[in-house]
């Protein structure tokens, strides 16, 4: 039997990760909205203000983690939704890799943006 065996069970793991990221996102998304719409009004945002926030290591790391968790949660959610609708076979494999690529690009670009916002590089 050439079956691939791994103790890392992908289906159940994705389910668990979806929940773990959800718990994290609930808190951070609420915080993000509060900070950038109620404490600082979106209309008053300038690069200088962004730079001050992003230069703090804790805030920077939180935002990067927020990006990664959000991307995983969203892209995985989209994939699940499509599988629930009966997506199968080659189409499923294609969609899976498209989503993985899109998600990775989003994270990479997001980190580039975050780094640029610190104004340090």
């Amino acid at each position: 039997m050439a079956e691939h065996y791994s103790s890392f069970e992908p289906k159940g793991t994705r389910w668990l990760l979806q929940r773990l990221t959800a718990a994290f996102l609930v808190v951070v998304l609420a915080y993000h909205f509060m900070l950038l719409h109620f404490i600082n009004h979106a209309a008053d945002i300038t690069f200088a203000g962004t730079q001050v926030r992003m230069s703090q290591l804790g805030y920077f790391l939180t935002m990067v983690l927020f990006l990664i968790a959000g991307t995983f949660h969203g892209v995985n959610g989209v994939y699940n939704a499509l599988v629930n609708q009966g997506l199968d076979g080659t189409q499923k494999t294609v969609v899976k890799w498209l989503l993985i690529v899109a998600g990775t690009l989003l994270i990479v670009q997001g980190i580039r943006v975050a780094v640029a916002m610190t104004g340090l590089f």
Partner: peptide, 12 residues
């Protein structure tokens, strides 16, 4: 989220 990152990309 995708749009958001795209707009913020102007920071680069």
């Amino acid at each position: 989220l995708f749009t958001h990152i795209a707009v913020l990309s102007t920071a680069t």
